[in-house]
Structures are given as structure tokens and as C-alpha cells.
Design a protein around this nucleic acid. Structure first.
Lengths: 160, 160
DNA sequence: ACTATACCCAAGTGTTTTAGTCGGCTATGC
DNA sequence: GCATAGCCGACTAAAACACTTGGGTATAGT
């Protein structure tokens, strides 16, 4: 279980999606890039992994973008970490093999135990916990004009 | 709040200390190096930071080593992360300045909020949670001969 | 059809972080 | 006074992080 800045980028991007996209409204990576200050191509890499994990779905073409692949309440922080950090997934699968501790390395075993607890804790925190309740009502209004923030962010060079 | 493998090394080392050292028994870094498979010099770097944070105290000379700087119940995972990861400490101090969210970046603010929650969660997990209760009784016996594991680990090249 | 948009993909680059190595110094117990 | 084991700093290899470049493909609008 590792919690890196890479994971932070992924989660904040998903928080953005959870608040500003829905079944028939997508958010472009360009917009996220501009707001979060992360480069477009780097976001593409992160979203490629999250798409494989079916956390998001992308639609192509003008007006396209991303929306959540599941309900906000179904996507947990743990899911995001799993999707982004390959090593984390491997570690947890390996720990599945030898669930009997042996008496090999006590401190390591204790850490693994803690790691599982933490994973469980993070599994309980879904994107629903990050919803902006105030904006929920006003969200219905700007369903038709969703282009305030970015309309001409070029490639590379994220936000100023 | 970041939870890296560096932190894992630090925590597992402290778990080792918590279980096998006490007021008048120290553990050498060579022993930890051999068991955890981390190089001696790297451990020295980690312990230098933890010593500054007064999580551990070192005694020099033959038979010397490290022991906890405070009671196991007083040292939390959050304390270790704070000691090891400079950036984490900085971030939390910065977040102290502008505790009012502004309406700057919603997703980032939500993440920071979560980060604080997680920090609080990890503050509640002390080294006491990692004690080996079985060994507690037998610990009194080997107070006099504490040299099973390593007696001639040279510099560099950690465990096999 | 053409074009602009925005997702998709892969390879390469610069920077930071990890982890280790080397060399030396200082305190201390035997 | 010698071996031990903590201290200390600089240097290095490898990995991870974040970005860049240069393509491609699907699609909405004209």
C-alpha cells in the first residue's frame, strides 16, 4: 500500500469528474490539466490505466471527454490506487498466497497486516465523500453550456 | 500525506526496535540491516532523521545501538512519516496558513481535507499496535545475551 | 467531404527520489 | 589501544515521476 503524488493526481482528477460530469456530460482532460496544473499527456497516461480498470469511460470527438465509469459511491480511494500503482496490486496478490505468516520476518508481517487494514480503511472512502453539495443544484443549469474554463489549451505546458 | 516505501523501511525498523529494545538494551543497525534487507548506510540516513525527531536515541561504542526515544504508545505512524518525509511536513504547515478554503481549487481542497483525515487516522496507530505479545515474556530472558542474529555484518551488502 | 476536437498510443527526455557505496570521524567498552 | 558501532557528508546507479513530441482514430459541426 503506497500513497504517492501520482495517486493524488488521479484522485483529484476523479473528484473533478465526480462533481462536474454525469451520464450525458463529459469533461475534457484539457480542462482538468488547466485546473490541476498537470500536463495533458501525463493525465492521458493516468486515465489510460483508470480506463482499463473501468473507473472512467472516454468518448471521442469534439465535445467528448471523460465521465465516471461507475457511480461515485462505488469508486473508492483504494480502487484508484489499485488502478494507478501496479506495484500495490502485485504486493496484495502476493500477500494472498502466503496468508499464513510463517515466522520469517515479524516486522514485515506486522507491516503487511497494517497495510491490509489501511487498504480496508481506504476502501470505505468513495468519491461520494468528495461531492460538492452546494453545486449539486446549480449543476443542472450549466448542463448545456459547459465550456467556461478552457477552450483553447494547447498541448503541453499545463496551467500558468 | 504520502506513504512511500521509504516510510515502510522506517516503520518496520521501529517495529523491530519496539519489540527487541528497551531502556537498557539497544539494537544495532547492522542487525536491522541483516533482517530487513536494507543497506546499513541507508538505515543510517533514516535513523538520522528519526533521531532529530527524537523518535530514537543512539548510543555509541561496542554494544551500542538504538532504542526508542519515547514509549511505544507515544510514537505513531504519522510521527514516523513526518520525520522521514520532509515534504509531508511542509505541506501540512502550508495548509495551516490558509485553513480557509477559498474557492481556488475544489478538488485540491477536498484532497487536502482527506489528507488531514488520513493523518489523523495514522496518528491513532502507535508502535504499541505492533508489539509481539507472545515474545513479551520471553523477552526478559534474553536480556543478557542479545547477539543471536548478527555479529559480523560488514559494511555495505545487506542481507543475502 | 473537410476540419477541428479530443481521445488514444508509444517512445523518448529531464528531474526527483530511492537506495546504495565509499571514505572518514567520534565515542566507548573491553 | 583496539574493535565496535554510531555519526557524517559526498557521490553514484537505478527507478519513479512528470513532461514532451509526434503520431493516430473517432466524431460532431459545417
Amino acid at each position: 500500500m503506497r500513497l504517492t503524488t501520482k495517486c493524488r493526481h488521479a484522485v483529484t482528477a476523479l473528484i473533478h469528474l465526480a462533481n462536474r460530469s454525469n451520464a450525458d456530460t463529459t469533461i475534457s482532460l484539457a480542462e482538468i490539466s488547466a485546473i490541476q496544473g498537470v500536463s495533458l499527456s501525463y493525465l492521458e497516461q493516468l486515465f489510460a490505466k483508470m480506463r482499463q480498470a473501468e473507473l472512467v469511460v472516454g468518448t471521442r470527438g469534439p465535445g467528448g471527454g471523460y465521465r465516471l465509469g461507475q457511480e461515485a459511491s462505488k469508486i473508492s480511494i483504494a480502487d484508484v490506487i489499485d488502478a494507478i500503482d501496479d506495484r500495490c496490486r502485485e504486493e496484495r496478490l502476493k500477500a494472498f498466497d502466503k496468508s499464513c505468516p510463517d515466522k520469517r520476518n515479524f516486522a514485515q508481517d506486522k507491516w503487511n497486516e497494517f497495510s491490509r487494514d489501511l487498504y480496508h480503511y481506504l476502501s470505505g472512502i468513495s468519491l461520494m465523500h468528495f461531492l460538492d453539495l452546494d453545486a449539486q443544484t446549480t449543476n443542472a443549469e450549466d448542463k448545456n453550456d459547459r465550456r467556461e474554463v478552457t477552450r483553447k489549451t494547447t498541448r503541453g505546458t499545463a496551467a500558468a
